[in-house]
């Protein structure tokens, strides 16, 4: 419940602030969003598995996000513009895996009840 409220508040803040970002950097932000989403879903999964650790979660969130942006940056610098695909694939795959596990947890719990 609270995460949903947080998400809505975040969207509200984003709409209210209207942070201007150059188009050239939108790729970085896109990959960063993907990484953040992955971290959030991973945290949810860890929570359901009862092994949630705040420190792990926060460091994971920030390091994943920054690393994703850094990979895109490196790709642009090294002339491998498609390097960002590595981040996209890695986070995408993990996103779906975590989502599947979260789903399973919910259904199993309900099954037990």
């Amino acid at each position: 419940m609270l995460p949903l409220v947080g998400l809505l508040v975040g969207i509200g803040i984003g709409l209210a602030l209207d942070i201007p970002i150059p188009v050239a950097y939108s790729k970085y932000l896109g990959v960063a969003v993907l990484a953040a989403l992955d971290s959030a879903i991973g945290g949810l999964r860890a929570n359901l598995e009862m092994k949630f650790n705040e420190k792990l979660f926060f460091t994971g969130f920030f390091s994943n996000t920054l690393m994703a942006a850094f990979i895109v940056f490196m790709g642009d610098r090294l002339g491998i513009e498609v390097l960002y695909l590595a981040a996209v694939v890695a986070f995408g795959v993990r996103l779906f895996q975590n989502l599947a596990l979260v789903r399973r947890h919910y259904f199993q719990r309900r099954h037990w009840e």
Partner: peptide, 12 residues
């Protein structure tokens, strides 16, 4: 974290 994600998504 979700709040941060919200900000990021809206900006993007």
């Amino acid at each position: 974290v979700c709040m941060l994600i919200g900000v990021l998504i809206v900006t993007q």
